[in-house]
Design a protein around this nucleic acid. Structure first.
Length: 439
RNA sequence: CGGGGCGUGGCGCAGCCUGGUAGCGCGCCUGUUUUGGGUACAGGAGGUCGUGGGUUCGAGUCCCGCCGCCCCGACCA
């Protein structure tokens, strides 16, 4: 993308409504614009980030054996009346009446719909286990939306649902998802800590929420710092082996981790002081095992190996995709702006042409841009260097390839790493190689 | 839902108390200048003052209603 042609409206001044770092930076870097309370338009750069997060989620879900589908945002009230949640859900559910006076709603979640879909087509125990997910917009009419996309009313969520023949199978599905989540968050450069959670209105008796530390978090969290060091991506746990999932689950739950409402001071005291981590946390994922709650309520039965009908066991698994954009920025920024992790940066590198119109600078920049293609943001604007430096820092590209007249004449460019600030004089080829190595 | 606040050009704000020709900074456009961390100068464009009603000779300013948005708290992926 050529910045001179891109719709990337950065702003110099801090918008008055934004109180937290991620919200401020998302507005200033031109990622989003608010259109109503808690509702945001995603501008090209913001959408790129959202897509990259989605893609990581998708790859890890697929690797864990889940299948992607896509359910609608608008649902009929009928299904919700069947599960009993149409009345239970309360004012948070956005209710809509269509032209035929039918009660509809904008889905806050999809348990009922997926259960209905499975009910229509799954008739035998042979059709399970089944794990289905989609990445779709949700709407929850929060009383008080705030913190930008972290507490929006409309948000993008990955929600998945597992169906198994028995509790044992459901627990296995739960553990697989847990590992998939650890890998997903690690790939985004996040240290997400699973904590035992209340099951809330979704119901069930086994639940973990995945929490990342952020000063604006909604709850106080406590956990064993040794947990952070575990490399889930490099681990050898195999989804296909039940004993691996068992071992994984034991490893994971052997560390202390709790939110304030579940905090156990006695157990906390057993954690060595140097390993105790404490702070505010925001929830970026939540998984539930809820047994036959919905399959019973909605009368889903399949035939077992003994020829008798039974209710499948369910679990549900959510990741707040749009919230993660804010969460990642909260976890990775400085005074100058965003510091994108390589895996989700909208552009791998920015090419800064410090002297547009200088034949050598222009030529070197064009060559770099041609080589990196769509993964580069070429700042070809007729602006002063300071403006470009500041915008590049603000937008947080992992790399800045700085092309000035002096260096360019000598066949060199300056490569700057946004995260640590290190700079080095290298040839354009070397700069390309180093940028590619981290993407 | 309880409490508080704000709607004036794209952004940030002043003007309102005490009614009388709508202003400042930034941004934007043109030109000159500058060229490695938001340059300087000159000229220019851009506003139904959220909205409806009322008071008044006259309303951004006073009064009433409505709408929108933000902040604190309780609640939430």
């Amino acid at each position: 993308m050529r910045l001179s042609r891109g719709f990337i409206p950065t702003i110099k001044e801090t918008p008055s409504e934004a109180q937290i770092a991620s919200h401020r930076l998302m507005l200033r870097a031109g990622l989003v614009r608010q259109t109503s309370a808690g509702i945001y338009a995603w501008l090209p750069t913001g959408l790129r980030v959202l897509r990259r997060i989605e893609q990581i989620v998708r790859e890890e879900q697929d690797a864990a054996g889940a299948q992607e589908l896509l359910m609608p945002t608008i649902q009929s009230a009928e299904l919700w009346r069947e599960s009993g949640r149409y009345d239970d859900y309360g004012a948070e559910m956005l209710r809509i009446v269509d032209r035929h006076s039918r009660d509809m709603l904008y889905g806050p979640t999809n348990e009922e719909m997926i259960t209905d879909l499975v009910r229509q087509s799954v008739k035998s125990y042979r059709d399970m286990p089944l794990n289905l997910y989609h990445i779709q917009w949700k709407f929850r009419d929060e009383v008080r939306p705030r913190f930008g996309v972290m507490r929006g009313r409309e948000f993008l969520m990955k929600d998945g649902y597992s169906f198994d023949t028995d509790r044992e199978g459901a627990v296995l599905a739960y553990r697989k998802m847990m590992l998939a989540y650890m890998r997903t968050f690690q790939r985004m450069g996040l240290k997400a800590i699973p904590m035992v959670a209340d099951t809330g209105p979704i119901g069930g008796d086994l639940s973990h929420e995945f929490i990342i530390l952020a000063p604006t978090g909604e709850s106080q969290v406590f956990y064993d710092g040794d947990f952070e060091a575990i490399d889930w991506i490099g681990s050898t746990f195999d989804y296909a082996k039940t004993e691996d999932m068992e071992r994984f689950f034991q490893t994971m739950t052997s560390y202390y981790a709790a939110t304030d409402e579940k905090h156990d001071t006695a157990k906390w005291a057993e954690v060595p002081a140097v390993r105790r981590r404490e702070g505010r946390g925001i929830e970026v994922g939540h998984i539930f095992y809820f047994g036959t709650k919905y399959t019973k309520a909605m009368n889903v039965t399949v035939t077992g190996s003994d020829g008798k009908p039974f209710h499948p066991e369910m679990g549900s698994y959510g990741i707040g995709v749009s919230r993660l954009v804010g969460g990642i920025i909260e976890a990775s920024h400085d005074d100058a702006g965003i510091i994108w992790p390589d895996s989700i940066a909208p552009f791998a590198a920015a090419i800064l042409n410090l002297k547009k119109g200088d034949a050598t600078c222009d030529r070197v920049c064009e060559q770099l841009y041609a080589a990196l293609g769509a993964d580069a943001l070429y700042d070809d604007r007729d602006e002063r260097p300071g403006v470009k430096f500041n915008d590049a820092d603000l937008m947080g590209h992992p790399w800045q390839i700085i092309v000035g007249p002096r260096g360019a004449a000598a066949g060199k460019v300056e490569l700057k790493r946004r995260a640590g600030g290190e700079r080095s004089e290298v040839t354009p080829e070397e700069a390309l190689a180093r940028v590619r190595a981290t993407r």
